[in-house]
């Protein structure tokens, strides 16, 4: 279906919502405006689909298989056994260690807007009845940059898992260290890596699932330290920002540079796994590490 037709259908479906803003229409008279919220345009291949269909497909682009960014709620819903997630350290929030102007206000606004207190949510859940510690970073919250709270919650999650002999599964997504917290944010890289070392020395399993985008100080710390590293298809994974590299070397970068596929080819992830197969893959991994299933099976994930 051509985009114009698609647009017409959507417009008919909800006339009230699609009144174009007059200013924009003037500027882009020839271009078709995409009504926000009703359609999804894939940032990788540009294909436009109904948001309903896209979400039913676990927020994966049907055309190119890009696994797009999702909220922590959606992630937990599609990963954990129904109603098994218990959050840890839910109330922890950031302070302003270097008195960066406007930081508290920004955090307060994001807490309101995203309905979460910080960029990572941690807790305990079951996946195919295997009990596990889980952490999910949510890029809606300041691009899931790592400040004190992210570092502390992840460290506590590993310490809890070490004490209770549990595996850890982390869904990583991040723009890197949170510069607004200065050197304190850099130190979180060391702190989390230390907790992972101890969890590992206790013989426990750590699985990383790299999601879009996993970059900077998070790639250079806990994201790269999984015993097994899974990546979602087509996501961005790297250390340095694309623009920084381009400015340094003054040449164009290949399209697939810093993709999950690039990382697989270069030996930095174990496997690329589609969202729909992730639960069964994690289950196989737990099984192979001699974790035992627990409790009554109460059905699959809600989604």
């Amino acid at each position: 279906m051509a985009i114009e037709d698609l647009f017409k259908v959507v417009k008919d479906r909800s006339k009230a919502d699609t009144k174009p803003r007059p200013e924009k229409q003037k500027k882009q008279a020839q271009r078709v405006e995409i009504p926000q919220g009703l359609l999804f345009k894939c940032p990788r291949c540009g294909t436009v689909t109904y948001r309903d269909d896209f979400e039913r497909n676990k927020s994966v682009c049907a055309a190119c298989n890009y696994h797009s960014r999702i909220s922590y709620r959606e992630r937990i819903e599609m990963t954990a056994d129904k109603d098994t997630f218990t959050e840890m350290d839910a109330g922890m929030t950031s302070l302003n260690p270097i008195d960066f102007p406007g930081y508290e206000k920004k955090i307060a606004e994001l807490r309101e807007k995203c309905g979460m207190n910080e960029a990572v949510v941690t807790g305990v859940c079951r996946i195919h009845r295997y009990e596990t510690v889980i952490g999910v970073m949510d890029s809606n919250f300041m691009m899931a940059s790592m400040g004190s709270v992210v570092g502390e919650k992840i460290t506590r999650a590993f310490e809890y898992a070490t004490a209770h002999k549990l595996p850890v599964v982390l869904f990583t997504a991040s723009g890197g260290a949170r510069m607004q917290e200065g050197i304190i944010s850099l130190m979180q890289m060391a702190k989390t890596s230390g907790a992972i070392a101890r969890h590992g020395e206790a013989g426990q399993l750590y699985v990383t699932v790299m999601t879009d985008p996993t970059t900077g100080g998070v790639t250079a710390s806990f994201a790269s330290l999984g015993d097994i590293i899974i990546a979602e298809p087509k996501v961005l994974i790297g250390f340095a920002g694309r623009r920084v590299i381009q400015d340094t070397i003054k040449q164009q970068l290949p399209d697939d540079f810093q993709s999950a596929e690039f990382m697989l080819e270069n030996g930095f992830v174990d496997m690329i796994v589609e969202r729909k197969s992730l639960r069964s893959t994690l289950s196989k991994i737990f099984r192979t590490h001699n974790y035992t299933r627990d409790g009554d099976y109460i059905g699959g994930a809600a989604k």
Binding site: D89, G91, M92, T93, S94, L95, N96, P97, S148, V149, G151, E152, T155, E181, I184, M187, Q188, A190, K191, G194, A195
Partner: peptide
């Protein structure tokens, strides 16, 4: 390193 972090809870 463990003790470095500034937050409230």
């Amino acid at each position: 390193f463990r003790k470095i972090g500034v937050f409230s809870e």
